[in-house]
Amino acid sequence: MNLVADILGWAFIAAGSFFTVVGAFGLVRMPDLYTRLHASGVLDPFGVSLILIGLMFQAGLTLVTVKLAFLVVLLMFTSPVACHALARAALHRGVKPLLDDKGDASSKH
């Protein structure tokens, strides 16, 4: 049982590290602000939460685990708010999104 938790923890940490680095790479590679926000969506709640869940498996059942769980929930609640505020502020200050010009998709209801 202990071994299973150990292996599961390492798997979560490895997956989280992978997604974090990929998200940061996308942050540099993407062409404009809004697509960069999508790349940060891979990194910000997702990859970081995977690493924290992996640490939870490593910690066993202590107060540390509860703290990590609280941290995951906190990130899951706050990061979309920050992301939405960022996108909305940029839109209102007139940062135009770079759109794919193969037809108009915004009329889709």
Partner: peptide, 13 residues
């Protein structure tokens, strides 16, 4: 806003 995004992500990391 790119800089704010960078700062926010640095904080999370």
């Amino acid at each position: 806003f790119d800089r704010v995004l960078g700062a926010n992500t640095v904080g999370t990391l």
